[in-house]
Design a protein around this nucleic acid. Structure first.
Lengths: 237, 237
DNA sequence: TGTACATCAGTGAACGCGCGTTCACTGATGTAC
DNA sequence: TGTACATCAGTGAACGCGCGTTCACTGATGTAC
């Protein structure tokens, strides 16, 4: 399936200079990620990143024209990384075990989130104030939901999926548009439940990581697994 | 029902000084909230707040011993405010219409969130880096979920609530503890679904506000209403 | 009611810090002929 | 292969800004007798 792509498909670097540039770009992002883990997105500072790498702060501008561009790169990378994790977790499940595939996708996302808290917060937490996501973040952001949809598509083509339910007209028409784009074989009704399932996946992880189930749930892993199983059940997987 | 309390029940202020102090404390928080709406929590600055009020920055320290204390006050106020909104929306629904009460609670929260985006992000978005919520935030944070539980309690005592489902042992024991604390009349199974319903309520609003349903859903109000109705349905309300 | 003292709010200056971004520059690397 | 020129990475200084917090202080308000 898809792999993490480092931006719009570049030809392999020809010159030594180009190779060093790619490497340093990666090192800057790595340092920025380390910084992010400690300070959160709002505290991410170009100067601190430069200091970590032993460069002068103005040198970073040769690689990222501004702090926001560095943030964008981190966001795109985070979306790609979480999608990789989800894809890898889902890929090892028996293709006919649709509920298992849904749950595994969720677990992949959750494990990645636990290991990369601030990156998770960067993409699924509050938007960074003053930052506007450019269009390049759209495709990477869609990968996990598309993976989930593909599970539902497979399940439906295998005869699964519960009975349709009535949707309010406005919801129906929004989902009809989505259906046309991504999954013509699904009914609007089951597509609606899939979107809600995706919402629950992230909602449940956010509740855990942001502390809203503190003192309520202790064994989060089991709880999350159960939650995703309930979602799969509701989807008729 | 409960009303927004301005901290541990104070006797009405006796002296003019005390009255002015209360008023200025409120004005500082109001200015901070305005600031929050523009810059987000990480950018909230005592000096900027002081400037807004025409005071010197050190004067604010007479009211809040540090920036974090001001943040805590804003968080507590936000939890109280969202609870007020939820309670008000729920209170006008016919007591026997349990699904309607659940949906109305959600709508109350959503309306408040739309009108107070940054305050919503403050309590339901990414945690503020470096900030640790003190114990006084716990009670206000519990008010909306307790309201939701009370609806389920009422429904169950009226004979509603679907059949119980099996829970994994670890989930069962966590929920048994919760049950003992807040709702002895509910089964662990329905309590689990109520907790998940609460997760969906916030998850759905966060998805809307943080842009994850951009270009997918357009009529968010109808979609959210539908989502909450599905939750109520799953709860057997 | 009047006085003496204690409490408190607000001032203004200062400490020490970090930030994003620009700019003219040096020296190394790459390219065209 | 060798030379001349263009491109690029990294430097170091600077601009102009904002931040949280502390401290000694003045003057007004409140309290006890």
């Amino acid at each position: 399936m898809t792999t993490a792509d480092p931006g719009p498909a570049q030809p392999a670097p020809r010159t030594a200079r180009a190779r060093v540039r790619l490497e340093l770009t990666r090192e800057i992002k790595d340092a920025a990620r380390r910084h992010l883990a400690e300070t959160g997105s709002a505290g991410l500072s170009l100067r601190a990143v430069a200091r970590d790498l032993g460069m002068v702060s103005s040198a970073v501008y040769r690689y990222f024209p501004s702090r926001d561009d560095l943030l964008t790169a981190l966001i795109v990378d985070a979306y790609s990384a979480v999608a990789e994790a989800a894809v890898a977790a889902e890929a090892v499940i028996d293709r006919g075990d649709f509920a298992g595939r849904w749950v595994a996708t969720g677990q992949g996302v959750r494990q990645w989130a636990l290991a990369n808290l601030q990156e998770y917060a960067l993409i699924f937490g509050s938007p960074v104030p003053g930052y506007r996501a450019p269009a390049d973040t759209i495709d990477p952001a869609a990968r996990v939901p598309l993976l989930l949809m593909s599970i539902v598509v497979d399940a439906v083509s295998a005869g699964r999926g519960g009975p349709d339910r009535d949707l309010p007209p406005a919801v129906f028409s929004d989902l009809a548009a989505l259906r046309a784009q991504v999954a013509p074989s699904l009914s609007e009704s089951i597509l609606a439940r899939a979107v809600m399932g995706w919402t629950q996946l992230i909602g449940s992880i956010s509740f855990e990581l942001f502390g809203h189930l503190h003192n309520v749930i202790h064994d989060y892993a089991t709880y999350f697994d159960f939650h995703m199983r309930e979602v799969a059940r509701d989807l008729g997987l």
